[in-house]
Amino acid sequence: MKVLIATEKPFAAVAVDGMRKVIEDAGAELILLEKYTAKADLLAAVADVDALIIRSDKVDAEVLDAAKNLKIVVRAGAGYDNIDLAAATAHGVSAQNTPGQNSNAVAELVFGLAVMMCRNMYNGTSGTELKGKTLGIQAFGQVGRNVARIGRGFDMSISALDPYCPDAAMEEAAVKPVHSVEELYRENRVVSIHIPATPETRGSIGYDLVTSMPKGGLLINTARKEVIDEEGLIRALEARPDLKYAADVAPDRAEEMKEKFGGRVFFTPKKMGAQTSEANINAGIAAARQAIAFLTTGEDRFRVNK
């Protein structure tokens, strides 16, 4: 068995050490492809491997065509829109993610962004506190649940929208269920986005939703830039000088927005939700374990393609 770890942005060395132990203890061979700059390097590396572990690297039909022996690809992280799921299915490849491994890191970043924006990016002017404010969570998965946990520590009033999560599960976490996206935005001073980028969600958050937020509204996006209607967001920020937007995934029109709105917008230089040593290690080792489990026992619990 051969397992390829292909990462343009490498795992931390300690994560690779842990992954190597999992893989080699199972009698498999580990192949590392780090900091590659050409797709041709990836195409050559996948030629005879049984499993592929990636981070934000793209696995499309061309990669799958080149990977003649590939049986599983694992994305170390929760999101998996960098894998062509239909192509993976067509090639008989199990596509998996590692849900929950990065969730605390992303949730902590939400509040790092929230405090910074509420304090006017620490520019010396008077800001606001999170205590007593309303927090709306758009999707109540692993990240959303951690956001709620931390929000309770700030003594915030929390509600969430997730059609796939039972009301009882939210209520057990001291979170008020809401049942429409309009209600979520209308009722919350701070809204944190955690939805995936799907045909239904792309461009779904725009002018109407953002301008429906209460005075002083703050929208935080640690999900995907594609869920934002950028034209609509820009119009909303123009119409409502009290609104702010922060994201760990820069929009396509980031420079224009920074020029127009200054300290009312903030974007991290690259996607940083999972950029902690703990999340890096957790997700990497989980990916290695899932790859080995699939190759040895057929364990397919985290499969995301049909």
Score class of each variant (00 low, 15 high):
A6T: 12
P10E: 03
A15T: 08
G18H: 04
E24R: 08
A26D: 08
A26P: 10
I31V: 15
E34A: 09
V46W: 09
A51C: 14
E62T: 14
A67R: 08
D84K: 09
A86N: 13
A86Y: 07
H91L: 12
A95P: 15
Q101I: 03
Q101N: 07
L109P: 04
M121D: 09
L130D: 02
L130M: 14
Q138Y: 13
V143M: 07
G144H: 00
V147G: 03
I150V: 02
R152Y: 00
D162L: 04
E171L: 00
V175E: 02
E183N: 01
E187I: 03
N188W: 03
S192D: 01
I195F: 03
A197Y: 02
T198Y: 05
I205A: 04
P214A: 08
K215P: 06
D229M: 07
E231D: 14
I234A: 09
A236D: 05
R240H: 12
D242I: 00
A246T: 12
A247M: 06
E255W: 05
E256V: 13
M257P: 06
M257N: 10
M257A: 02
K260N: 11
F267Q: 07
T268K: 04
K270T: 09
M272P: 01
T276K: 03
I281F: 07
A286N: 05
F294T: 08
T297C: 05
